[in-house]
Amino acid sequence: MDAKEIERVRRFQRTVTQRIGVLNDRFLARDRPLGQARVLWEIGAAGSEVRALRARLELDSGYLSRLLRSLESDGLIVVDGGGPDGRVRTARLTPAGSAECEELDRRSDEVAASMLQPLSGRQRERLMTAMSEVERLLLASMVTIDALDPRHPSARHCIRAYAAELAGRFEGGFDPAHSPAADQELRPPAGLLLVAVLQAEPVGCVALKLHRGDAVAKIKRMWVDPAVRGLGLGRRLLAEAEARAAGSGVRTLRLETNRALTEAIALYRAAGYQEVAAFSDEPYAHHWFEKRLLREG
């Protein structure tokens, strides 16, 4: 990683944290730091399970517990147990907590306005554009990709969403039974399923079907949640699948796709896949692609 790039990121962090008041232990001139205020916002009017809070905010369980205890002692939240064994803990705002959130929102609006007020209309437009781009890129940097068992809830979510989208986009719908990729085919050593997660939510997947002793493998079940398209996640998932395949001795990757998936076709071509003659009887395929992976060294 370039040392100058790292220093620019650190300088940006220092500027932003100072401007939004993170350094002050009385965020927005209230009697609590930013961490407590953010937890109140995340709990919201509907309440939130504690484990969901921890996952969304990526907080250490001990630190989150301390934040919740402080908010409870201030009378702003209550935390109760639920479920059959009482271990599913849910945090909810009290009336005082709701009032505090409203005040924090009002003061946050004032701070945002104070950032914009000194700027000209052109400068505001530039700032809005830059903020949107920074947010998009930061979200992209927060995505993690890991191999999961096909029966994992996050994996199941992605496969269901994949099938639902294809059913809506293909002429005549889509039946996964006619384009099989069974669970056992997506577990090592037969294959794997990569799942992308952002803020504790599954947002994409790609499967790799390996063939023992064969230098050819297939890409299957490529899907990215519409909410995060534009973050470069499709290219990243594809690159990760290629790296895993190369590490397993694969020299050629193949995939087939439907003509309705124009974005996917553009992605494959941009990633170096070449269209070839049909190599399968996949019923939903109109295009077949192949890519030779480079040998290391």
Rank of each mutant, 00 (worst) to 15 (best):
D175V: 04
S179Y: 07
A246S: 15
A99C: 01
R160L: 12
K220I: 01
E275Q: 14
L68S: 04
L233Y: 10
L198C: 10
S120I: 04
A140H: 02
L57E: 10
R87Q: 12
R236S: 10
G230H: 09
G247S: 05
D214M: 08
L294S: 13
M142T: 07
A285Q: 04
L127G: 03
G230W: 07
P188S: 08
L34H: 06
P150N: 04
G234P: 14
V216W: 06
G62S: 13
Q117Y: 07
A266E: 12
E133R: 14
G47F: 07
N258L: 07
I219M: 07
H286Y: 01
A147D: 07
E275W: 02
A130Q: 10
A277E: 14
V39S: 09
A130Y: 03
L261C: 06
D149E: 11
T129R: 15
A196H: 03
D214W: 01
C158D: 06
P189R: 05
S280A: 09
T257F: 05
V16R: 01
Q123R: 12
L139E: 10
A96P: 00
A181C: 09
L237Y: 10
L238F: 05
G97A: 09
L59R: 15
A260M: 04
G234S: 09
D25K: 11
R66S: 08
E240V: 11
T257K: 06
G204C: 08
V78I: 13
C101K: 06
A140M: 02
T90W: 00
V206K: 10
S73M: 11
T144W: 02
V78M: 03
Y268T: 12
M131R: 13
Q123G: 04
A266P: 01
V203S: 02
T257D: 06
G213V: 06
S61L: 09
I219A: 03
E165T: 12
A163Y: 03
L68V: 03
D109Q: 14
A271K: 05
A243I: 01
A260T: 13
A260P: 00
P33E: 04
G213P: 08
R244M: 10
S61W: 03
L208S: 04
V197N: 10
E185L: 09
A140T: 06
A241D: 04
A266D: 11
R259L: 13
G168R: 11
A155I: 04
G191V: 08
M1E: 09
T94G: 07
T94L: 08
W223F: 15
R221D: 05
A271N: 07
S141P: 01
R136D: 01
